[in-house]
Structure formats: structure tokens, C-alpha cells
């Protein structure tokens, strides 16, 4: 009744989500009354195993193959170790790479998969997991009745395991079986440029509620009036209304301003990942059930096209007609 959790690293660093996986994995292992084993594949596996040796981990298995993530090698390594250890639960991060191998691995192992899990309860022969649906407006629970299953866990839901452990480290050899049809050639950083939203004390951040590019002058004027910097959620950047360096969130920037004013932003998990560390969060959104209100300190449930002009006028500004 053990747990096998797959750690993640990139460009020489163990990613934070791996330490969260230790916490979640240990809890799951306790529920099952078994061991928590980690697997780390590729890169400086010895160094990574050292880093991952946190309290609660029984064994760190290492596969020294390749430098960076490659789903072919990952899948082969997991398949091999899964056959040896026969874990009840396979746990992977619900990260971009996690979603690049976990669904394939679950198919290959013929185990059910539930992704983006935010909570779980071990019961009887299976597990009950909790996840969000409809953009975070509702939660659902699922009962998984299987002797073996796989879950991906949402990043930043569990605290990182910090205390040093006394795990055994065990290198294993895996035959990846021929060449992979996928070749990783490198990385590139995007979202540079003259504006650095991570430096701003106050961010006026705009989302899909602004509706059209023609309406942007309204929030630009607000940012000017407040001496704040303009940032946005993803759809604004996808539409090319603002450049990539303004995007807050999982695939954009992580910001920690004193004040973050979220205007017409629903608060999707990938957005919140980039701004939940702000000191004070103010939300302006017509939908009282928008998830952004779960993390907001102050809220105005009203139309941004009424509130923003009034706010500009409060500071003696002249709101543009939109």
C-alpha cells in the first residue's frame, strides 16, 4: 500500500512543487499505512536526491538519463519502477510537464487518473478526491475504486516539506527502448522588455471583463492616475492587447505588490498562482461568485465600466469615453 511520487526539476533546480508532493504524498502514504517513495529522472540526480531527502520520504529512486525533462524517458522510468514497487498511488504534479506524461503513463499502466486534485481522503479500498470545476465555481468529489490509481496534485495546495529526512537513495537502470520521437532542443525565456511588473508597488490588473481593446484607455488612465503599473490576465495577452511582459500568472509573472487591483478577472487558478502573494488584493467584478473573491481583501461587486470612471474622478482625473 505504498505511494510513488514523481519529482520535477528544470534547468538544474528541483521545482518547489516536488517538495509539495512530498507533503501530499506522505499524507497519502499515512492514509494507506505504507511507504512514500520518490522518483527523480534526469539531470544531476544525485544532487536532486540530496535535496529531495526530506522528512517522510522512505526511498528516493534515481534514473540518470538525460539532462532535462523528456516524456519518453519519464514514462519508461515510471513504468519500470511501478512494476517493481506496485504502489497503490502514483502521484505527479499537475504542472505543464506533469500533464505531458501522467495521462500517457496512466494509460500504459492501465490505472485510472484524476488530475488537478486539491484534496483527498483514503477510504476502504479506494480514495475520494476533490477537484474544482467550471472555473473554480464548484467543487466536486470523485470516488476512485481501484487497487492502483494515479493522481496529479495542484501546485501550491500543500505546504513544502522542509525538514531533512533519512531516505535511502537507490539508482536504477532503465532501458528506454529505442529512440524517443520527441527531441527537446532547448529553452527560451519570453516576456522580457522594458516594463517589469514584478517591481511595481501597485498593479492595476485587467481581465476579460474589459471586453474590447478599445476599452483599454479606461484602465490605462486609472493606472496613470494612481501612479500604478498596468498588468493583466492571460486573455488580454493572448489577444495581443498588451505584451506578454504584462501577464500575471502561472505562465506569466509572479508578482508581490503592496496592492493588486484585479478588474474583470475571475481568479482562475493559473492566474492566482501569480498574484496571491500580494499584500492587499482588491477585486472589482460583477460576479459575486467569482473565485477571485476567495483571496481578495476588499471587493466591489459591480460593473467596472461604472466603478473605474468614478475612481478616476475621485482622484480628480478625467475618465476617457469608452
Amino acid at each position: 500500500m505504498s505511494v510513488l511520487a514523481v519529482a520535477e526539476h528544470r534547468r538544474g533546480e528541483v521545482r518547489d512543487v516536488s517538495y509539495e508532493l512530498v507533503t501530499a504524498g506522505r499524507r497519502l502514504a499515512d492514509g494507506l499505512g505504507g511507504e512514500l517513495n520518490l522518483l527523480v529522472v534526469g539531470g544531476d540526480v544525485d544532487g536532486f536526491a540530496e535535496d529531495l531527502n526530506r522528512d517522510g520520504v522512505d526511498t528516493v529512486y534515481t534514473v540518470d538519463d538525460g539532462e532535462e525533462f523528456n516524456h519518453g524517458i519519464h514514462a519508461a522510468a515510471i513504468e519500470r519502477l511501478h512494476a517493481d514497487l506496485e504502489p497503490t498511488a502514483l502521484v505527479a504534479p499537475n504542472s505543464v510537464d506533469g500533464l505531458d506524461y501522467a495521462p500517457a503513463v496512466a494509460q500504459r499502466l492501465d490505472v485510472p487518473l484524476v488530475t488537478d486534485v486539491i484534496d483527498f481522503e483514503v477510504d476502504g479500498g479506494g480514495i475520494e478526491v476533490t477537484r474544482e470545476q467550471y472555473g473554480g465555481k464548484v467543487e466536486t468529489t470523485y470516488q476512485v475504486d481501484a487497487d492502483q490509481y494515479a493522481v496529479t496534485v495542484r501546485p501550491a495546495e500543500w505546504p513544502q516539506a522542509e525538514d531533512r529526512g533519512d531516505a535511502a537513495v537507490e539508482p536504477i537502470d532503465v532501458d528506454v527502448g529505442g529512440e524517443s520521437g520527441t527531441t527537446v532542443n532547448g529553452f527560451e525565456e519570453v516576456g522580457g522588455g522594458d516594463v517589469d511588473i514584478t517591481e511595481a508597488d501597485v498593479l492595476v490588473s485587467i481581465g476579460r471583463g474589459i471586453e474590447e481593446a478599445e476599452n483599454l484607455p479606461l484602465v490605462e488612465e486609472l493606472a496613470d492616475t494612481l501612479g500604478a503599473t498596468l498588468s493583466s490576465s492571460r486573455p488580454i495577452v493572448d489577444n495581443e492587447w498588451l505584451p506578454k511582459n504584462r501577464q500575471v500568472g502561472q505562465s506569466g509573472k509572479v508578482v508581490t505588490p503592496d496592492v493588486y487591483i484585479a478588474i474583470g478577472i475571475s481568479g482562475a487558478v493559473q492566474h492566482v498562482a501569480g498574484m496571491k502573494g500580494a499584500d492587499t488584493i482588491v477585486a472589482i467584478n460583477t460576479d459575486p461568485n467569482a473565485p477571485i473573491y476567495d483571496i481578495a481583501d476588499y471587493g466591489i461587486v459591480d460593473d467596472l465600466f461604472d466603478v473605474v470612471p468614478a475612481l478616476i474622478e475621485e482622484f480628480g482625473g478625467d475618465p476617457p469615453e469608452v
Binding site: E68, D97, T183, N185, V190, V254
Partner: peptide
Amino acid sequence: VRRELEGGVEELTDVE
């Protein structure tokens, strides 16, 4: 292709 990873990093990958 480019795979969009976390934190403004993209992975450049060839897929058969």
C-alpha cells in the same frame, strides 16, 4: 513546437 512551461519559459521541441 514550443511548449509553454511555467514562468515565461518555453521548451523548443521536435516531434515526429
